[in-house]
Amino acid sequence: MVDSYRPKDLKDALSIRAEYNPQPLAGGTDLMVRYQSWSGTLPLFTKSVMFVGHLKEMKYIKKEAKDKTVTLVIGGTATLTDVANHPDTPVVLKEAVLSIAAPALRNNATLTGNICNASPAGDSICALYALDAVIVIEKSGSRREVPITEFITGPGRTILGPDELVTAIKIPLKASSVNDFTKVGTRRANALSKLSFTGVADYKNGRIDSIALTFGAVGPTVVRSVELEKKLIGLSGPELKAMIPKVIDDYSTVIVPIDDQRSTAVYRKKVALNLLEKYLKELSSHE
């Protein structure tokens, strides 16, 4: 049996976290499965637990405008349902979130939990990499903001310190006219994805002005190559079209999946490249 804490507010939560280093539990949809025991018995947590899902100060989604950028700020206890329902949620994130399990799970699970779980197959993570999301991390008396690509360091691993909590996720809202989130899973509801793909891009004056392409569940973390994306900036639709085979070739060197019980490496790579090709074709037909 382990101790559990129910902080009365965020300040209280941060001081409990600093003093006892308990594991935060939000929706519990990852943790209750990871530590489940025989039916009818207590889950077998290995360290103390702090409930955070009820903390109202972090249950919000709002827009912030500063200079010329508008940012969507998603509070640390906003649920997947909250994120899917918000009118300003970028379409790829909305689709990613709606691809996760079923309503009863999404009503309870948080976006923060999906990120902190840091599964290479975490569906929101694939979209958040493409959206340049930033993770807001707090501990008593200080606060830092870290891009999601630096926050997640490996399967199930993040840079979060034992005295810290994630209190928000920030997403810069950018123009994006060609959007795609696709997940290839075994069963639509309740199946962790075998593979996911996110593409967001925008044209300005007939040329690609911004683009992000990410692949989930093909490596230890979500794969994104800013270097390869840079080669596509400035291309017109027809120019992109002519380059598609070359782009696929380039990406076949950065996508190096592993075999696991959900599918084989060869299958994953093939599907990932097919999804990329489909997206690039679609993109090249826009202006």
Binding site: S4, R6, L25, G27, G28, T29, M32, V33, P43, V49, F51, G53, H54, L105, N108
Partner: peptide
């Protein structure tokens, strides 16, 4: 999936 403490 919900511990009692989260339902308080």
């Amino acid at each position: 999936m919900i511990p009692l403490g989260a339902a308080e």
